[in-house]
Design a protein around this nucleic acid. Sequence first.
DNA 1: GCACTTACTTACTAATAAGTAAGTATATTT
DNA 2: AAATATACTTACTTATTAGTAAGTAAGTGC
Lengths: 186, 186
Amino acid sequence: MLSTRKKIVVIADQLIRMKGYNAFSYADIASTLNIKNAAIHYHFQSKAVLGKEVIIASREKFKENTTLWSSFSSFDQVNAFIEMYSNNSKNNCICFMGALGSSYNTLPIEMQQELTDAHEEITVWLINVLKLGKEKQEIEFDITAEEMSDLITSGMLASLILDRVSKHAVLDNVKRTLLKRIEKKN
Amino acid sequence: MLSTRKKIVVIADQLIRMKGYNAFSYADIASTLNIKNAAIHYHFQSKAVLGKEVIIASREKFKENTTLWSSFSSFDQVNAFIEMYSNNSKNNCICFMGALGSSYNTLPIEMQQELTDAHEEITVWLINVLKLGKEKQEIEFDITAEEMSDLITSGMLASLILDRVSKHAVLDNVKRTLLKRIEKKN
DNA sequence: GCACTTACTTACTAATAAGTAAGTATATTT
DNA sequence: AAATATACTTACTTATTAGTAAGTAAGTGC
């Protein structure tokens, strides 16, 4: 059983990824958890603080995941990373980077900073996996690791968004294409 | 000199791509154009109608552009398409597909439908250019045209978003990588 | 010169937003 | 047993939201 505080973060996270930061309200959280509006304010001074907490929780989950994957081959680590994004699509959700990045200009500065740090953290990890994988000859690609990292994160972020908009399966197409791109030939 | 009606659509478009559909208000438009709140309602019955009009205007601009590009080589057409996305980055804006797609679940149905149709229109055009280009041997790629189309639209949509979040130039990396991907070798 | 339309403004409404101050019930500490 | 902290609720405030009803001023058509 989670504490109310943790439940609020979980619900806020889902609401942000389902509706966006500016479209969800304290009333949405309160009604879901059967508590009152003011109870949220007891745990979080402001919406900005709650929003920042949601990003922090996502960063912690990411760190946990990468630790779990650390014994995997480079290909499997990238694959697990891609699958982590795919899992967001449950309940009509997108990833937190897409949900918050798309309204970056309207976010309170503390959330902007946390989001930028989160992106940096993800990018540093992915570039490292790609570089090491190339060295170890577990994967191959003909562009720089930085370019490959941007291609993967961009592709996954957007295909979650476009999967909601489009009639066909954008996510599946992009996943397949990206993995094919780093796969060893012969 | 544009009519007030057209000015409202232009400003609404910029606001949507800068702040998102749920973060902009009639007050934002009114203050920019030095008119009153109610004047917007005179031209558009509701925010949903205005939002739909913004998508329609974008679709018309897209059709104009593709007509202008029709004499270009396949590579140059894809390049022009990518540059069209890049131009969105002025004034801290993203593309309308990213701005509206990321809050798809909160949009009124008429906007959802118009956005889905817009995506379909863009995809049909791009797949066609890619297929013809491959036939004419003006470009080359080792995946299907459908996969390549999804990779390009996803990459451009997301790199505009991540360019705001990231410290480094995601947009440049993705643009370069995508063009390299279809470029003829030798 | 009168009817009618166009393009607004003034003045408002009802709903919803985040946030707050003060009170309460329960458990924990001393 | 008294004091204190925890985890809320009740009741509210202030600001902002989209939207509306009624009025007006400047043209247009006849």
